[in-house]
Amino acid sequence: MANKRVKRLKLDAAIVKRLENKNIITCKDILTKSSLELMKITGVSCKKINAVISLAGRSCCPQAQSLDRVLHGGLPMSSLTEIAGPPGCGKTQTSILLCVMAALPISLGGLDSSVIYIDTESAFSAQRLVEVAQCRFPSYFNSDERLVNLTNKVTIHNVTTCSDLLYRLQNLEEEMIRKNVKLIVVDSIASLIRKEYDNSVSGNLILRSNILSKQATQLKYLAESFNIPVVITNQITTRLKSSKHDEKTTNSYGDDIEPETFVTAALGDSWTHSVNTRLLIQYVDGQYRQIIIAKSPIAQCAAVNFLIEDKGPVEVEESLVLYNTGSMPLVAAIQVQSDVMGQQIPYQLH
């Protein structure tokens, strides 16, 4: 699409001729020039040139991915979107790609804005951010100046305690206004909670619930006040499956049977109700992952496979599965790679 001819953009014939005289033949050629350069070449106003750049950018943009279509255009504004999954499944990779998309010019399908990335695990990599940008949009990120501009648009805040995170969230408004922030990422929400609040200690569960409630309230306030998406990554945990029988049961031979367990998103049911959209990531095999829309107020439950490549998560064509019932089954076969003999564990969906 980047090699689409300028002649096919239905521009004024005089503009096309002037562009071609300067060897600007394709949409890609237009996007490698600044607005000022194009104004000098064509002799038209800034408003008209911006319209030309926007048209060329839309022509270069790939068609919306199937997951975006199911979500009616992408991540919902003014709400909290959680990405939960096992370690190494692609949560941070997805978050980094979202940073690139938010920083892209509007003409290329981005928001032309800044991002605040709150890193609780020191997982963010500026080198990976640049790699994803260069590999995914090589015709745009083709100069050091644009790459530096990208990195300047992503502000990293490293926090190490739950109180630090809450303080940071409560003091973001001025920075968001000053930097034109249109995306907040918290990676991850569970890391600090799990470090500071051991559930086996009496009273910690109440303290944990209180701090999580305050963090969720502040995140919702920022999302709604600035009409932006807020993305939060979450870890997973193993629980005992509830049963009407006693936890300790026996089979027909009288042998003890260990209670059945399942894997679910961490932080409990109260946190589940705090997020508006829940995306779950599972392993399909050693190469493929699958992202599932498990909870959404506007979208049908669906799943799509993807790969992690140099340019970030890449959707596998024709892998979309829609659940016509309107909701996911209570227990779905979401696979989690285990360190023990490669075992896989079912994932509980809420």
Rank of each mutant, 00 (worst) to 15 (best):
T42F: 06
N23T: 10
P62L: 09
S35E: 11
I53V: 14
S59F: 00
G43N: 09
G57F: 04
C27E: 07
Q63F: 03
I25Y: 10
S54N: 11
S59G: 05
K28N: 14
I30P: 03
V44E: 10
K22M: 12
S66T: 07
I30T: 03
L55H: 05
K48C: 07
S45R: 11
D29A: 07
T32N: 08
V52S: 07
L67K: 01
R58C: 05
K22V: 10
A64G: 02
I24P: 09
L67M: 11
S34V: 04
V44N: 09
K47F: 14
T26C: 10
I53K: 10
K22F: 10
S35W: 00
L67A: 00
K40H: 13
L38D: 03
A64F: 04
Q63E: 15
G57S: 08
C46W: 10
I30F: 04
V44P: 01
V70Y: 01
T26Y: 07
L71M: 13
A64I: 09
T32F: 02
I25M: 14
I30D: 06
I41K: 13
Q65N: 13
L67G: 00
D68N: 04
S34F: 06
I49L: 13
D68F: 01
K33I: 02
S45P: 08
C61K: 13
L67I: 15
A51I: 11
I25H: 07
I30L: 12
I49D: 06
Q65L: 12
I49Y: 08
K33W: 01
I24L: 12
T42S: 12
K47A: 12
L71S: 00
V70C: 02
K22I: 02
K40G: 03
G57D: 06
L71G: 01
V52N: 08
P62K: 11
L36R: 14
G57W: 06
N23V: 04
N23F: 10
R58L: 07
C60H: 06
G57C: 08
S45Q: 11
I30S: 04
L38W: 04
N50K: 15
R58W: 04
A51L: 12
L71W: 02
L38A: 09
S66N: 12
I25N: 15
A56H: 10
I25R: 12
L38V: 04
K33E: 02
S54P: 00
I49E: 09
L36K: 15
S34G: 15
I30C: 05
K48A: 14
L31C: 01
G57P: 04
S54L: 11
G57Y: 02
S59I: 05
M39A: 00
M39I: 14
V44S: 08
I25G: 07
L36Q: 13
T26D: 11
A56K: 11
V70W: 05
K48H: 13
V44M: 01
K48R: 15
P62Y: 01
L31S: 03
C61F: 05
S59P: 03
L71I: 00
C27M: 07
I49K: 09
S54E: 14
S66W: 01
S59C: 13
A56G: 05
P62Q: 08
I24K: 06
I41F: 05
K47S: 14
M39E: 13
R69V: 14
R58P: 00
T32L: 08
L71C: 02
T32S: 14
I25F: 15
N23P: 04
C46A: 15
L31D: 05
S35A: 08
A64Y: 05
A56V: 09
K47Y: 14
A64D: 14
G57A: 06
R69G: 00
